[in-house]
Design a protein around this nucleic acid. Structure first.
Lengths: 232, 232
DNA sequence: CAGACATGAATTGTCAACAATGTTAGCTAA
DNA sequence: TTAGCTAACATTGTTGACAATTCATGTCTG
């Protein structure tokens, strides 16, 4: 088992050295977990009390959340937790498709051989995990994240990496949460991951990009369908 | 002359209602114009004095600049103006290539006929401007921005639009500034713009994306060459 | 009864003082 | 002379009070 990858992180500064930073992480988690429901009005003094800090650092946390687009803010009027409608979710998935497609292309060009082997090993693990009981759904999701994370890293493009692991990653998590998750897709996703990994191993940039884009737009189609069913 | 497009803006809130917001705009401009040189150490109290405000709002402005990646900040240690090396610039251009390629694809799918005609008219203007004296270089740059801006808008993708006009746009401006600008590319760029517009008019998504990506990666190649010559 | 205006309460924006942290220069000792 | 420690300084992080703005309520007028 290759325990190289630190699961996710990159901005989940565990040992956050500043109050604002810690609070930012807390609120972010609360929003993504649905603790703070979408559309909730945010009152600075209330939240400051709740998190046991003063308004200064809390304000900084809110501003950062605004930049990550988890919160919308209107000057002098206050801020609310974002509300994800279908339209917004489509925008996010399309942006991710574009960026992660490019990441796959770059990975095919730049990923070192040993990392490619590690990627392949990771997929073997997933294969095994799927064989076992369905209860491993949680692990599978972690695995999916791991796969995409490694490719983003392999792109060696700082801007793309930061955006995928920062803003877009959080939003995608909210999208998934809202659609209640997809269990049946495990095998399909793994197959697609395999094909992408193969294209990268073959150094076929064009194919790696195309396959990644299909993979993500396919994921969106499913999420979209679930959402449509919910609303009928 | 179609005066529909407000040149740039989108986040250049002219009538910024808050001190922090205005200061944010000011500092941003100062950094891009080179008023605050790259790598400059930023001392909160000094800047607060310089801009005639207290540290509170200034701090907010700095945080926002950090999110836009115009400033790097180390907790408890202070912040500096970003320093763009070739590597970082390449990352930025590649990200832009990816996102704006996707925007062109979406524009080919979604742009209304009348906007397509307006786009064509805009290019006619540029044609005329190029015929005149070279002094119109400034206008040409504005025109280039206009063209790309309209396509980003036509993508109707909020996430892509915000990123292109926010973070990426500022950084690209700094890159261009650093390389001292390219005068000879005017006609080439216009030709490419024409081809892209034609692909969009034909609703050829695939081609629109490919041409836009070539257009941007071509721009990067030139900037890159200039930078390499500078350092030898 | 409807709509506009004024008033006050609630909330955000700004400020200046205080606490905590990082940095640097000078001193001591090996 | 230099490595390591110490203490003073500079700078950032945090706080609570104050000012400005918005929003809601209720009253008054047509």
């Amino acid at each position: 088992m290759s325990e190289t990858a630190p699961t996710i992180s990159a901005d989940e500064t565990l040992e956050a050295t500043t109050l604002a930073s810690r609070t930012f992480d807390s609120i972010k988690a609360d929003i993504i977990d649905g603790e703070l429901a979408q559309g909730t009005k945010i009152v600075e003094s209330d939240l400051a009390l709740k998190y046991g800090i003063s308004r200064g650092p809390l304000r900084e946390a809110i501003h950062r959340l605004e930049q990550i687009k988890l919160i919308v803010r209107i000057p002098h009027a206050g801020s609310r937790v974002i509300t994800l409608d279908t339209r917004m979710m489509e925008d996010i998935y399309i942006a991710r498709e574009s960026l992660e497609g490019m990441a796959a292309r770059l990975a095919a060009r730049l990923m070192p051989e040993n990392e490619i082997r590690a990627l392949s090993a990771l997929l073997d693990q997933h294969e095994a995990a799927i064989g076992e009981t369905e209860g491993k759904a949680y692990f599978q999701r972690e695995g999916d994240i791991d796969f995409h994370y490694r490719i983003a890293v392999a792109s060696k493009n700082q801007w793309i990496l930061e955006n995928l692991n920062g803003e877009l990653y959080q939003l995608i998590r909210m999208c998934r949460r809202q659609s209640g998750q997809i269990p049946t897709r495990a095998q399909t996703a793994l197959d697609q991951h395999r094909q992408i990994a193969a294209a990268i191993a073959r150094r076929d940039e064009e194919l790696a990009e195309i396959l990644m884009r299909r993979h993500i737009s396919g994921a969106w189609e499913i999420v979209k369908k679930i959402l449509e069913d919910q609303h009928d």
